[in-house]
Computed example of a mutant assay.
Amino acid sequence: MTSAEIIELTDKYVMRTYGRLPLALVRGQGARVWDAEGKEYLDFVAGLAVCSLGHCHPAVVEAIASQARKLMHVSNLYHIEPQAKLAQLLVENSCGDRVFFCNSGAEANEAAIKLARKYGKIHGGQEKYEIITALKSFHGRTLAAITATAQPKYQKGFEPLPAGFKYVPFNDVEALSRAVNPSTCAVLLEPVQGEGGVNVATPEYLKAARELCDRYNALLIFDEVQCGLGRTGKFLAYQHYGVEPDIFTLAKALGGGFPIGAMVAKEKVAVAFSPGDHASTFGGNPLACAAGLAAVGCLLNEGVIENAARVGAYLKDRLLELAGWFSFVKEVRGLGLMLGMELTVEGKEIVSKCQDRGLLINCVDNHILRFIPPLVITRAEVDEAVEILAGVLAEMKQ
């Protein structure tokens, strides 16, 4: 099919829940993707931080193919070898003790919300159910997850929202201190906010959150769906801060492109769930966990995380160069290969012009360009991307 035919078919039959760009991608390899006509693009979106190993990494492809020939799905009524092995790998490389598998980041956060409320009621009574989140956060699209997401644009039209959520400004220690109280069962934060504009938590903020949770017997939950799994130059973003959560959530990069999510908790918290309290038909299926084992194994053993830190620093320096050239670039921020460039102008046209020149980037909050390329990206590919972006910004300046 041609791109036009794919777009026409999509418009006719698929629900219009996405503001899609006029582009139909049909193939990917490494940091490159191609449309139906064969035009090549350098991908600095990576499936929205999903394809951290690049597109179609051989180890992930082989793991999926091999597992598909043996067993794709069985119920969680039975024990599943790849699930057990992936749980072990995540626990041995984090502060967690037990893992619940699901299919997405929203589901992982739903599981965390349910576990926090169950734990709160066991240890603090029926009134200990309040969850505090940060303004500009994003935690998913299910009803509880959009309620946790402190951005009204995601909530509009879906009221009434579930009760028991409270919002505070990100990185405001004083506001967080005023908000946490005996009814608080959890504080849910992204160490680096993604959809909210690539906002990086300060060490003081996360340490204060940990201390407040300890003081009020509440749980500290880190949403690492986007910022986890090597994206910031550490395996998990919280490892930059010396602050351990009681629960953290993962998805996106966990399957190397295959859908899988996980909620990881410390033992004292995990025991609040009993059989029947939570479940997922497809969660932790053999195929997804085989992909996860391959993807996480590559992240940990092939220098991918170190590359994210090294090349991420280089990309940040190159973006800061552009900030010095163009007055409408307000700030460059982020960690590793999770970077944002805040503009004083809207970014939609810049995204479109970059796409025309063969570079895929993303814009959040209308005026923040987000750079989340595969973690295997090279300095040469960074230079290629920055050259295209510089040309577009120069055109915008004129």
Rank of each mutant, 00 (worst) to 15 (best):
N93V: 07
F138L: 07
P373C: 01
I388E: 00
G358S: 13
D356W: 08
S75M: 03
Q29D: 14
L71R: 13
L319F: 04
V386K: 12
E110A: 13
N285S: 13
R117H: 07
N217T: 04
E195K: 04
G140Y: 00
N103W: 03
N181Q: 09
C227E: 01
F273Y: 15
D172C: 02
Y314N: 09
A218V: 03
L219N: 11
A323V: 02
K397L: 13
T142R: 11
I361A: 05
R20A: 07
G292D: 05
L315M: 15
V99R: 02
T10G: 09
E342A: 13
N366H: 12
K153E: 15
F328I: 09
G255F: 05
A186T: 00
D356I: 05
L369N: 05
N171R: 05
R69M: 09
A106S: 15
I122H: 10
C289D: 02
R210I: 00
Y119R: 01
H73N: 11
V33M: 00
H73E: 10
F258D: 13
Q83W: 03
A148R: 02
Y41T: 01
V60Q: 03
L319K: 07
E40R: 10
D43F: 01
L369C: 08
G30M: 03
R210G: 04
V329P: 09
I372L: 06
E110Y: 02
A144N: 15
R178Y: 10
C289E: 03
L320Y: 04
A144D: 14
G336R: 12
D11G: 15
K330N: 14
G276P: 05
A111R: 06
N103M: 14
A308M: 05
S183K: 06
V382M: 10
E387P: 00
N285T: 08
K114C: 04
R231E: 06
P160V: 07
L229S: 12
V271C: 12
E190C: 10
G324M: 04
F100W: 08
A237M: 07
E302L: 05
K252N: 15
P275T: 07
G391N: 08
S104E: 11
V345Q: 08
I361P: 07
P259D: 06
